[in-house]
Write a protein that binds this DNA or RNA. Sequence first.
DNA 1: AGCACA
Length: 506
Amino acid sequence: MMASASSQPQFRNTQPPSKVIHLRNLPWECTEEELIELGKPFGKIVNTKCNVGANRNQAFIEFADLNQAIAMISYYASSAEPAQLRGKTVYLQYSNRQEIVNNKTTGDVPSNVLLVTIEGVEAGDVSIDVLHVVFSAFGFVNKIATFEKTAGFQALVQFSDSETASTAKNALDGRSIPRYLLQEHVGPCTLRITFSAHTDLNVKFQSHRSRDYTNPFLPVAPSAMDVSGQLGFGQDGMKQEPESNVILATVENMQYAITIDVLYMVFSAFGTVQKIAIFEKNAGFQALIQYPDIRTARTAKESLEGHCIYGGGFCKLHLTYSHHTNLNVKINNDRGRDYTGGNTATMSNQPSILGPQPIPGLGGTAPYNSVPYPPPNAMIEPQPGASWDTGAGTVSPLPAQLQNQMYMHQGAMPPGVGPQMMPLPGQGSQLGPPPPGMSPQVVPLPGQGSQQGTMPGMGPQTRMMQLPGQGSQQRAMPPGMSTQMMQFPDQGGQQFPMPFSLPYGR
DNA sequence: AGCACA
């Protein structure tokens, strides 16, 4: 048949032009998107086929028009720069076929392996551990492999079965990784999820890019040995600031003025506030809130982070640990306040009726154990509404006019009920039933372990934050609902709450 | 680095 029978005719002869281009030496698990990215400058790509060949590192792209394929081949034939994908040289030639035939049901044949594209981040912004935490909420994650593409970051996440994978896909596709799992500089990490064609990933090492959670004895790649400890990130790669008894607060969407009194009120709910300083920086309003101890600060930070001081999503708090340990407040004024007793008679004692009380649902945390001096009102029984009644105590840290402004009464919250009941996170009147279309914001992830079961029907309550103190009288949450679920602010529907069932320690 | 899919 073959007229010019040669040992390797396809290598020696230039292929006749075809709309289909054969690509080889592709990076691992090259995606259709990457192929399109490579080819689209030359024309309209009408079909692709990825991961073919013995090493699954070959692919085909089919242009709408033959001339477009010719343009691509011609360009790279004379270009000084070879075609590249993820830094790898990609070799192109006309395919020996005239069209791609594939029965690809592009995307959604269920698989136990998910292909996850994390939009808007650099590789390295999202650690494999963060991904593991996110996806573990749906079931045991067998393996994860991550890889970079030119403009983005992808991961293959392998579950035991496609049902679990489907659940995860449905819940997470289009959503973003919660901010608190990420470094500050990282932008929104939207997840795009499809089913992979893989069924079992071949993970050879535990490394910063691949993990096999089914095999603890898998050798650890040397490159992954010393990742933790850098940049203040913990072993799991998540944010781990050095803790402090002083909290630095910044405020997003600051539609209302925030005074020291307001901050005092909010932060006193977690323990004795010793000092507050507020100031403007380039970034805007900032405040430092000093507690007697790290533990109290941690409780306040974890409880308040992402929550809004005012309803309607106004004045959303973002809290980090300050590098300070003791604020130097020289004069008490509207910029700084020292409540420790040196300065003001009225502020000389525990100013709040809120004594040390365990935070409901914080799992045995005793945040006030280390308060260095006994708050005088520790024994006062919780009384709904009492603590924030301006007339109830000797100290009224909140100007009357502020009270109106501060806690917008939201139907379910009776006047006089203090900030314990204020609907903190979220944007709206969260005490009522969820507006249509709001519920996806609070799609509860199914719990994987014993710690946190699925919370069906968990609607707007998740946005309620139960502050310690008197709130137990007016519980807005079903008993037993973990406060952990309340700590995840939603951000315009972008984020999702997660049960905080970390399979391994932080 | 070298041509899939049924």
